[in-house]
Simulated assay, not measured.
Amino acid sequence: MDIDGIISAIVIGIVIGVLGRLVVPGRQRIGVLWTIGVGILAALIGSWVAAAFDVADTNGVDWVEWLIQIGLAALGVAALDRSRSRPRR
Score class of each variant (00 low, 15 high):
Asp2Tyr: 04
Ile3Met: 11
Ile6Ala: 12
Ala9Ser: 11
Ile14Asn: 00
Ile16Thr: 15
Ile16Asn: 07
Ile16Ser: 07
Val18Ile: 14
Leu19Glu: 05
Leu19Gly: 09
Gly20Lys: 07
Gly20Trp: 06
Leu22Cys: 12
Val23Trp: 06
Val23Gly: 09
Val24Ile: 14
Val24Arg: 09
Pro25Glu: 15
Gly26Lys: 13
Gly26Trp: 14
Gln28Gly: 06
Arg29Trp: 08
Gly31Gln: 06
Leu33Met: 13
Leu33Cys: 03
Leu33Pro: 01
Trp34Lys: 09
Trp34Asp: 13
Gly37Ile: 05
Gly37Glu: 04
Ile40Leu: 15
Ile40Phe: 14
Ile40Arg: 01
Ile40Ser: 04
Leu41Glu: 01
Leu41Cys: 10
Leu44Gln: 11
Leu44Phe: 12
Gly46Trp: 00
Gly46Phe: 01
Ser47Trp: 05
Val49His: 01
Ala51Trp: 02
Ala51Met: 11
Gly60Ile: 04
Val64Ala: 15
Val64Lys: 12
Glu65Met: 11
Ile68Tyr: 03
Gln69Cys: 08
Ile70Ala: 05
Gly71Ala: 05
Leu72Gln: 04
Ala73Glu: 00
Ala74Leu: 05
Ala74Gln: 03
Leu75Pro: 00
Leu75Gly: 09
Gly76Val: 06
Ala79His: 10
Leu80His: 11
Asp81His: 15
Ser83Pro: 00
Ser85Phe: 02
Arg88Trp: 09
Arg88Lys: 08
Arg88Thr: 08
Arg88Tyr: 08
Arg89Tyr: 01
